[in-house]
Design a protein around this nucleic acid. Structure first.
Length: 586
RNA sequence: GCGCCUGUAGCUCAAUUGGAUAGAGCGUUAGCCUCCGGAGCUAAAGGCUGUGGGUUCAAGCCCCGCCAGGCGCACCA
């Protein structure tokens, strides 16, 4: 058996990268006179029966090379001198090249991942800054289930980018400015219940907002008064300013409670108001370089040539709106952080708005070419009976969702772990309940529409958060038992043997972890990682059921315990990147 | 009307972004704790990938036309 590892493949690197590089060279060597456009990329095999990895790039070359695709693949294979990490290459079907890796190499990879603090996650973001704008709730409204996606997906991306070595600036761009404040101030003046405000500020502020909003709908003079209050606020009226500050203070206390429960934190929380002083200057700049002009009393940037309609940067009453604020925000972030990328996590409804202001930022030179602007949008959450809105009053508050999750988790714990102390059960129900909610969201593509149902959001078995937590806890338990029964032996003194087919599959899966993390981050899809972790847990559970660990003979026993340890490490690391805790006992 | 998105097992979702026999979970049915945690494991049943055409060695994925749904489209964010 060959355990040679080439210099170009350090213990912590992404296998797919190495194989692709190597294959590209093979392609180029075999057909030196042809422009192959970088052909030779390698992907994980679609079916384990075919091998570990596969390269499909021989087939599309049939035309340029004027050869049958299978023949191309055969030539490449026969021309290649295999590095030690590859056990065999095989041409199949119309021209697939199947790659089987060396067992020693695979087990070596798994061990490296187990030994590395960062599980060998590639540091491709070193030296780069990325700003991630997520969650962003509105002041004076409680967070509802519609906010969970931005918060949970954003937080996962935040973790993922940090893990890749990026310098991440997580910014909670809260809605603390805008026309709703006129309405809220009028509502506050006329309807506020100070006791309730004390008890649950956001709910009470929301109540008066809804009431005031409804009144504005039927009474034009009420609306005028709201506008007047807003103008007073924007002109720095002391009383309104004090109210406004108080609303923000109260709201943030409630937001922070929710964030603490969710285990989410931000580097900065700059509301829209932070950028207010810059808005007039932005509009001037846009006018100066000929992008903005007056139309129907407002200042607009006309993008209809590019099928992006018209973007208003200053309303006819002189006030600025969100597009202007967002442009100013980019300007501020670029100046302060020089980010390689700014990522926004919002719902699908804002696609046009993001296209517009990204476009304007480019044209105006506010976003340099070195700063990518990325809108990560997700499908709106709906209720089975349709969309929900604050005004219709059919919202489910985020707090009640979290409460319900914990209640359900607690019921199951009490049922299956009757002897667990009350305190521990309570604590555990938080990890399990919140984990279930996060996993339910993160395990599917962000773009899918989600129709909210309690059962789905709080699913506790099958492909769910608790399933993964359970797999982790069970490993911890086995390892603890091992330590008890064999206090003198140290599994890492024994080699990791891939005797069983499933054992090899698990080790290979482990070896794919670094590349999976990178892919999840760069494609903005935490579900890629969630999927991977579920697969891993499933393979492990199957293995666990099939073979004995503690009662296996010496050597096999230690090898299996070692594998357990690495699986546990990857599960725990992966789940933590998704923002999900892994208790050792559940 | 124009634009963006979605349509895959009864239900909820995958499918390595054009690859080989379309896979999981839930639910249904049948099994599995004299061994380490049954929140688990092993099986079975379940599909004309909305529909009609096209592109090529290869289409759930790309192009065109329909059908159905969601969301946007000038002073809300």
């Amino acid at each position: 058996m060959n355990s040679y590892v080439p210099e170009s493949l350090p213990p912590c690197s992404v296998i797919e990268d190495f194989l692709s590089d190597w294959f590209r060279k093979c392609f180029a060597k075999t057909f030196p006179d042809v422009d192959l456009a970088g052909a030779g990329s390698v992907a994980v095999a679609t079916n384990p029966d075919f091998g570990d990895f596969q390269c499909n790039d021989a087939m599309p070359l049939a035309k340029t090379l004027k050869m049958p695709p299978r023949k191309i693949a055969e030539q490449i294979v026969s021309n290649a001198s295999l590095p030690g990490v590859i056990e065999s290459l095989e041409v199949a079907g119309p021209g697939f090249i199947n790659i089987k890796l060396d067992d020693t190499f695979i087990s070596g990879r798994a061990v490296s991942i187990g030994n590395d603090e960062q599980s060998c996650i590639p540091q491709c973001g070193a030296g780069k800054t990325v700003v991630i704008d997520y969650s962003s709730p509105n002041v004076a409204k409680p967070m509802h289930i519609g906010h969970i996606r931005s918060t949970v997906i954003g937080a996962a991306l935040d973790n993922l980018y940090r893990a890749l070595g990026f310098n991440v600036v997580a910014d909670n761009h809260i809605g603390d400015w805008g026309t709703q404040f006129g309405i809220i101030i009028m509502g506050y003046r006329h309807f506020i219940d100070h006791e309730k405000l004390e008890e649950s500020p956001a709910a009470e502020l929301e109540r008066v907002y809804v009431k005031s909003y409804a009144k504005a709908g039927e009474d034009e003079s009420w609306m005028d008064k709201c506008r007047a209050e807003l103008v007073k606020l924007q002109n720095g009226d002391a009383e309104n300013l004090a109210l406004w500050k108080e609303f923000i203070r109260l709201s943030r206390i409630e937001f922070d409670k929710t964030y603490e429960r969710l285990g989410v934190s931000f580097d900065i929380t700059r509301g829209e108001s932070y950028y207010q002083d810059a808005l007039a200057g932005i509009v001037e700049r846009l006018k100066d370089n000929g992008l903005a002009r007056k139309s129907e009393g407002a200042i607009i940037v006309d993008l209809s040539d590019e099928d992006q309609g018209v973007c208003i940067v200053q309303k006819s009453d002189g006030a600025f709106n969100y597009a202007t604020t967002d442009i100013a925000t980019v300007d501020s972030r670029v100046t302060e952080f020089s980010p390689a990328r700014i990522i926004y996590v919002t719902d699908e409804r804002q696609q046009l708005h993001f296209k517009q202001f990204f476009n304007i930022c480019r044209k105006a030179g506010i976003a340099p070419e070195t700063t990518e602007l990325e809108h990560v949008w997700f499908g709106l959450m709906r209720l089975p009976e349709g969309t929900f809105s604050t005004r219709q009053g059919n919202v489910i508050k985020l707090e009640s969702l979290l409460d319900e999750a914990e209640v359900r988790a607690l019921a199951i714990i009490k049922d299956s772990r009757p002897n667990m102390p009350e305190e521990e059960a309570k604590e555990l129900s938080k990890h399990i309940g919140i984990g279930a909610i996060k996993y339910a969201d993160l395990s599917q593509d962000p773009r899918t529409l989600i129709t909210f149902t309690w059962d789905k959001a709080l699913s506790l078995d099958g492909n769910s958060g608790p399933y993964l937590q359970y797999a982790y806890a069970r490993i911890c338990s086995v390892m603890a038992k091992y330590k008890e029964q064999f206090p003198e032996t140290e599994p890492s003194d024994y080699p990791l043997i891939l005797g069983d087919e499933l054992e090899r599959a698990i080790a290979l899966k482990l070896a794919l972890f670094p590349g999976t993390v990178r892919k999840a981050a760069l494609t903005y899809r935490p579900c890629v990682l969630a999927d991977y972790l579920f697969d891993l847990a499933q393979a492990y559970s199957s293995f666990y059921q099939r073979v004995p660990f503690l009662k296996a003979e010496e050597g096999i026993r230690e090898s299996r315990i070692r594998l357990c340890g690495i699986v546990a490490g990857v599960l725990s690391k992966g789940l933590s990147l998704l923002g999900i805790n892994t208790p050792e006992r559940i």
